[in-house]
């Protein structure tokens, strides 16, 4: 019997840390699959109660305007802000980076973000879809081999505050990956490229946070 819809989200019974993936809109299943393959127990986060048991959170690619509206309408934004302030590890890709940035340029009227990351991020920094691209990117924190990075109407980090540090920049110097303590943000989408090093790097932060809390 084939079910109408396959809702499996990676290895949900794995022994690893419990990682939430914000599942309001966007490519959350791709993140869930990668995290499951890496041994995490994955929870799709749509409601306040989904936030309680998670050790870390991934915010996927998608439309930040939509994620913002739905996260506030269904009461998941406030508990996420509280967990971020308490030090929960968070990895945001593209729209996810926008959601965790402290300051946003190119937002629509009334758009809010969760914040936490001391950076200024510009939405749609490259222009229309015709300017979307893929490239090889040096990310020294992840080793010598470059990361194959896919940018889709992506944002860039216009300025990095003193609490944050850049992890990667394009050849023209524009910063496209940052971290600050337990927070990581990338303008691009490792979840659709098969290179799992960013997710492994994030999961190492989650495991450390779980160990420190034990």
């Amino acid at each position: 019997m084939v079910s109408l819809r396959d809702e499996s989200v990676g290895a949900t019974d794995a022994a690893g840390p419990t990682v939430g993936v914000l599942a309001l809109q966007g490519d959350f299943r791709e993140h869930a699959r990668v995290l499951g393959e890496l041994g995490a127990r994955v929870v799709l986060v749509r409601r306040p109660e989904d936030v309680e048991g998670i050790d870390g959170l991934v915010i996927p690619g998608g439309e930040s305007t939509v994620m913002d509206k739905l996260s506030r309408a269904f009461g998941v934004a406030e508990p996420l802000k509280r967990r971020i302030a308490e030090g929960m590890p968070v990895y945001g890709t593209c729209a996810g980076l926008i959601m965790i940035a402290d300051t946003l340029l190119g937002a629509i009227d009334g758009q809010q973000n969760l914040g936490g990351l001391d950076v200024v991020v510009r939405r749609n920094a490259f222009g229309s879809q015709n300017e979307s691209f893929e490239t090889e990117l040096d990310v020294p924190a992840l080793g010598d081999a470059p990361v194959h990075a896919v940018f889709i109407r992506g944002p860039v980090v216009e300025s990095v505050g003193e609490k944050a540090r850049p992890l990667a920049a394009l050849a023209d110097g524009r910063v496209v990956a940052v971290e600050q303590g337990n927070l990581i943000g990338t303008s691009f989408h490792p979840e659709i490229e098969g290179d799992h090093r960013f997710h492994e790097y994030f999961l190492s932060k989650v495991r450390s946070a779980v160990a420190a809390a034990a």
């Binding site: 599942a23 896919v150 889709i152 109407r153 659709i192």
Partner: peptide, 12 residues
């Protein structure tokens, strides 16, 4: 890159 934009529209 072309298929990727559609991936980002999912659930929308």
């Amino acid at each position: 890159v072309k298929r990727g934009l559609a991936e980002m529209l999912k659930g929308g």
